[in-house]
Amino acid sequence: MTSATLAAPRRHRRFRFGRVMVYVVMIAITLLWITPTIGLLVSSFRPADDVKTSGWWTVVTNPERARFTLDNYRVVLGIPIPDRPAPGGGTRVGMEVALINTLTVALPATIIPILIAAFAAYGFAWIDFPGRRPLFILVVAMLVVPLQISLVPILRDYVALRLGGTYLGVWLAHTGFGLPLAVYLLYNYISTIPRDIFESAFLDGATHFTIFTRLILPLSMPALASFAIFQFLWTWNDLLVALVFLGAEPRVQVVTQRLLSLLGQFGQEWHLLTAGAFISMIVPLIVFFSLQRFFVRGLMAGSVKG
């Protein structure tokens, strides 16, 4: 800031014109970027007939005729609407069920790989054992394997083990696909913790397990949080793993699956699509806006997801 004022006087006019242009261009780009989301948000509060018969922007261009309602959200979440009969069983959207399912999938699918990866990262970084290096390289090498590789074999295993359609099956799949990156990132972090911290603990007779749970886990919280956000959003937004391993049973389907079938099944029920889509976005948006700092850090580190 101070250095800019030094150079400014010499070409003051051009500098200021350029600055205004930068602001104009940036405002234009930002507006362009948020318009689609605003369109969805506005549409989700419009009555079903309006959504199907006029563009959402008429709310702005023709405000006196705009009408708003919460009915779309009520229908999608299965909340009864006053003065209207409840829809029959066939047209139930069941987004509330899907939300609980997504949470059931995403929370453990975030915590389990982090826990397993943190143990492994500590093991690779601070315990000496034969084969340590080749095994670590094997783990990192798995970063290159796209998850599509395991669909055919793992599906076969799941059929044999009757694991298809269980949460355990999906958690394990997400764990397997997230582990290489998690181990790699946490290793980078844990291996840089100063050695002195361990030495005094060892002198006091602490075991690896106590050192790990009492010292390393609390110290690694920033790294754990960064990866956790990344993995949580990844599992929340995932479609492929859910489609393949969770299956078509509506009772266990997650939000993305529900939304996909809404796109097909209720392809013309635009008002339900909007509310459904917005509900699926709320949790990621809350995570994003409240934990932005960790998120950006995790993103930088996590740019190598396989």
Partner: peptide, 15 residues
């Protein structure tokens, strides 16, 4: 938009 799922984004862009 980075935190929005591909399916959610598809619904948005249908409009």
């Amino acid at each position: 938009p980075m935190v929005i799922s591909g399916v959610g984004a598809s619904v948005i862009w249908k409009f």
